[in-house]
Design a protein around this nucleic acid. Sequence first.
DNA 1: GCCAACGTTGGC
DNA 2: GCCAACGTTGGC
Length: 160
Amino acid sequence: MRYWLMKSEPDVFSIDDLRRNQVELWDGIRNYQARNFLREMEVDDLAFFYHSNTQLPGIVGLMKIVETNVVDPTQFDSENKYYDPKSFAEAPRWQTVKVGYVATYSDCITLERLKQLFTPDELWVVRRGNRLSVMPVESAVAERIFAVAKALTLETSSSV
DNA sequence: GCCAACGTTGGC
DNA sequence: GCCAACGTTGGC
């Protein structure tokens, strides 16, 4: 089982939207490196949900991969923002996954916090100028993120 | 195949 | 809103 981090702009699609829908197709990825990671995903892999391009960027929750190698339908829809006229049904260029809601953390693990805790080699999202929206997270790093999430929850509940 | 121009991402 | 990073496009 592997761990991942996936970015989304909360104005477009947030952890609250995923909680409401429970399962969602992760569409619109049009970067080959990100797509290659999507292709590597397996059912039951876990992915951190990261809010980007927002007031308080950071990890806000957890999701699970529920279906893999899904052809992204938006590539064939000329009305869609993610339409790719160079992709053909016989050989679709863009595959993605369906994700399932697992949890929302009681507090956002902010980018600022992540930068304090992890080196750019450990967690790519803290790399300066990083634009990749889907990336792997090593197990040991994932475990440390889980520990931080747990500590935040305890902090919150004990301060009430 | 090189590289300048351009567009997008995303933190701040 | 600014701008650094960086992927993509297109002329040559």
